[in-house]
């Protein structure tokens, strides 16, 4: 199975991951599963069961201009770790935990869209534009591929 997860919260630009999911609705093969999650922390792992290819879209604060979109590597994630979360595991730690639990899908792609952390309501213009661009890119990448549902059984439960 292919699953795209938008991570975020209802506050300002932090919604951008959800916006990408919204833009992808009805534009992909129905077998691509679209999920918007509100700050799941380690519970993100519960969404990895049976997934072969996982795409994560999240807001990013890394010093670039708002709207800057990047596909993140492991070292990018490590560099970002620890800055934005307190009681919960951050994304890098959660992926490390998923790896230790043997729950990681075969393919994991993470896209970050730089946000304006001070944006209070709705999405700021540049960020909204980048959401549209990323959604188009993802739609193109994923519709060009033959989508076959591969239920990889693993022991990570989804609740």
């Amino acid at each position: 199975m292919i699953r795209i997860i938008g991570l975020g919260s209802p506050f300002g630009d932090d919604q951008v991951g959800w916006r990408v999911i919204e833009l992808l609705q009805d534009r992909l093969d129905p077998q691509v599963d679209l999920v918007a999650l509100d700050r799941p922390g380690a519970a993100l792992i519960n969404w990895m069961a049976g997934v072969r290819r996982l795409v994560i879209v999240d807001a990013l604060v890394s010093g670039h201009a708002p709207g800057h979109t990047a596909r993140l590597t492991d070292s990018d994630l490590d560099a970002l770790a620890g800055g934005t979360s307190s009681h919960q595991l951050d994304l890098a730690q959660t992926l490390a935990l998923a790896g230790a639990l043997d729950c990681l899908p075969e393919q994991v792609e993470i896209y970050g869209i730089e946000i304006d952390a001070l944006q209070r309501t709705g999405l700021s213009g540049a960020v909204a534009d980048s959401a549209v661009t990323l959604a188009k890119t993802l739609a193109k990448t994923l519709t060009d591929l033959p989508v076959t549902r591969v239920e990889t059984p693993n022991s990570c439960s989804r609740s």
Partner: peptide
């Protein structure tokens, strides 16, 4: 850990 994540979920 998996059990913990299930209960948290």
């Amino acid at each position: 850990v998996r059990r913990g994540l299930r209960l948290q979920g």
